[in-house]
Design a protein around this nucleic acid. Structure first.
Lengths: 146, 146
DNA sequence: CGTTTTAGGACATTTTGAGTCCGATTTAGG
DNA sequence: CCTAAATCGGACTCAAAATGTCCTAAAACG
């Protein structure tokens, strides 16, 4: 019951991209160093983000990555699900649609509500919100690195 | 990002106990068969529930398990956390209290809100609610086995 | 062409999930 | 007291998932 490192790194990576001047691109190596994320792991994560259409990749010398959408249009849930796959708590319906609990079992109903609780929180906050919140924190609580 | 089988089985086991006449006890073997849960796995899960004070165990011949509290006094979250350990999404504060993000980082804040979303749903529903909901479902959507 | 950079897949390692097994302990009943 | 019936607790196994690493290919710039 946790968000994986991969998902977390994905969000951090996108936060990094979102802080660039619009249109500017940056390389995996840069992001990796600045955010202290293992480079080849981050590379793989970015591949998922590209496939999900959140990031634009430019190959070859002078290439790199850039955000493909406005940060305010990217709910954090979308980032995490792009990396981790869809969040689904409830099991019986997904394993087999003709689940023995068909018609709904109380437990599955509850799990679905719990899942919606997570998703709601992760949907309400966008990448833009996250950056703005971070700036507010940095302002009132300054620290050398970052 | 899921509730584990162990947690799920724990809730199912307690639902089973809660359906007994008050004061009545039942054996692991009985619960295991009726709910189709591997016996020795369920045994281990029940140990956690006993330690958490949700279930009373009676050892020796003629022993078994019985609910230790009123089902209406048992939020499902309590069951799941008894079995799985506490639900904590956020990682930096727990790995080391002097986390580099001290003072709060935006991402941890978000994860905390997501976590609260799950916990809220699992706290609001009690074991008694779950059983009542299940009865309602069984009524409108009858099926042979259970 | 050669260098830089992403793409993609195969591989390695560690942790977690999901059980199993077995000896110890407790208790009821004969 | 002895035995059968239960839970207790820990060690163990096995598989899957998380977390990376590595290497070759492909693309693009100069």
């Amino acid at each position: 019951m946790q968000i994986t490192r991969a998902g977390e790194y994905g969000v951090m990576g996108l936060m990094h991209l979102a802080r660039l001047r619009p249109g500017q691109r940056t390389m995996i190596d840069e992001v990796s160093r600045q955010e202290s994320i293992p480079k080849s792991f981050l590379a793989k994560i970015f591949q998922s983000l590209v496939k999900a259409g959140l990031v634009r990749s430019i190959r070859g010398a002078g290439g790199g990555f850039a955000l493909a959408k406005n940060p305010a249009q990217i709910p954090v849930l979308e980032i995490i699900e792009a990396v981790e796959g869809r969040i689904v708590f409830q099991r019986c319906k997904m394993d087999r649609p003709d689940c023995e609990h068909a018609g709904g079992c109380a437990l599955c109903g509850l799990f679905e509500r719990a899942q919606d609780g997570v998703k709601e929180a992760l949907t309400r906050t966008t990448l833009a919100d996250l950056i703005q919140q971070q700036e507010a924190i940095d302002l009132t609580h300054p620290r050398a690195h970052r």
